[in-house]
């Protein structure tokens, strides 16, 4: 049996040129979808990180599975609306159960999150296996997703004008909604994220914005999971924001940086995946991880290198008086 090499030769032409010369429209849709997913996730993600809800996002992304499976079983369609409703219901149930366990017992938030999402995910997997013949979903497609299939999806029409693959159009709509909501509620989100007490005293209900963000998070996750999979949605939510927050102290700047980073992930992830013949979402995550590692080292104010230098010079300054005395 012939064994191929794991890492193919890096061929300039096939990796960088061919996708854009021969398969331009496919590549465009894939990269655009990648950018829309990670851009939207990144915007929501900045707030998710600031509010220390990163693992709640993880929990929601897993517990969507029973929600969409039930929606599918009840309506026998993969239309957007029932899926959305199922997903939102599952997201709300997750958050409600986590809070219920936290408030009614001595179990802490982390354990409550773990218990709830794993149980709901288990219910989802069992539902899928019980109704395996009726469900056109499999748990693995939910886990991975595949950006590469985006150009093959049904095309959405506006009038008789073909716009593009349905998931891309849907994601674009969600992205626009995210931006509109962000502009409309920027101040409120800012205040509630950093100082819930101040927000309450200004008459802005922190709870309302908390639940609003959670709701929107489940919408974003459900519209993204099809292309990047449940776990990698988390990567797209956390990485842009976390990297941006290492570069700046201002939330508005962080939001811009996270959007720019998302474009970077989409383009370079796509090419990496083409080169290695690997999953595109996986490639985007690897790029995101590498980029985070780089910023972590080299960030101008908070990077490891700067921290190290600062410690060195501090030591020298502290020793100065002693040196003089000697």
């Amino acid at each position: 049996m012939q064994r191929e090499k794991l890492i193919p030769e890096f061929d300039w032409h096939t990796v960088l040129v061919q996708p854009w010369s021969e398969y331009a429209s496919n590549s465009l849709w894939i990269v655009l979808m990648g950018f829309l997913v990670s851009g939207t996730c990144g915007l929501v993600g900045c707030f998710v990180i600031l509010r220390r809800m990163a693992l709640v996002g993880d929990a929601i992304s897993h517990s969507l599975l029973p929600g969409i499976t039930l929606a599918f079983l009840l309506t026998h369609s993969r239309d957007t609306l029932p899926m959305m409703i199922g997903a939102i219901a599952a997201g709300a149930l997750t958050v409600a159960l986590i809070e219920a366990i936290r408030f009614s017992s001595r179990i802490k938030a982390d354990a409550a999150i773990g218990i709830v999402f794993s149980s709901l995910f288990a219910v989802g997997v069992i539902l899928i296996s019980v109704f395996a013949d009726k469900v056109d979903l499999d748990a693995e497609c939910v886990l991975y997703g595949e950006l590469g299939f985006i150009p093959l999806q049904e095309v959405a029409y506006f009038g008789d004008q073909a716009i593009g693959p349905k998931p891309v159009v849907r994601m674009a709509v969600i992205a626009v909604i995210a931006i509109v909501l962000l502009i409309a509620f920027y101040k409120e989100m800012l205040v509630t994220s950093f100082d819930a007490g101040l927000a309450a005293s200004l008459g802005i209900s922190p709870a309302r914005y908390h639940y609003g963000l959670t709701l929107f998070l489940s919408i974003v996750i459900v519209s993204s999971f099809e292309s990047v999979g449940v776990v990698l949605v988390i990567a797209m939510i956390i990485f842009p924001g976390a990297t941006a927050l290492l570069l700046t102290d201002r939330l508005s700047t962080a939001l811009w940086i996270s959007t720019a980073l998302s474009a970077f992930y989409a383009i370079f992830g796509f090419h990496l995946a083409t080169w290695l013949n690997a999953s595109i979402a996986g490639g985007m995550t690897v790029i995101a991880g590498v980029l985070f590692g780089f910023v972590w080292m080299a960030s101008p104010n908070q990077g490891l290198i700067v921290q190290y230098r600062r410690r060195q010079s501090n030591n020298n300054e502290n020793l100065e008086p002693f040196n003089q005395e000697l």
């Binding site: 693992l55 996002g57 993880d58 999979g229 990698l232 995550t285």
Partner: peptide
């Protein structure tokens, strides 16, 4: 979350 998703992404790749 980052370690979880980053390592997993590498694994998926």
């Amino acid at each position: 979350g980052m370690v979880l998703a980053g390592f997993y992404g590498l694994g998926v790749c």
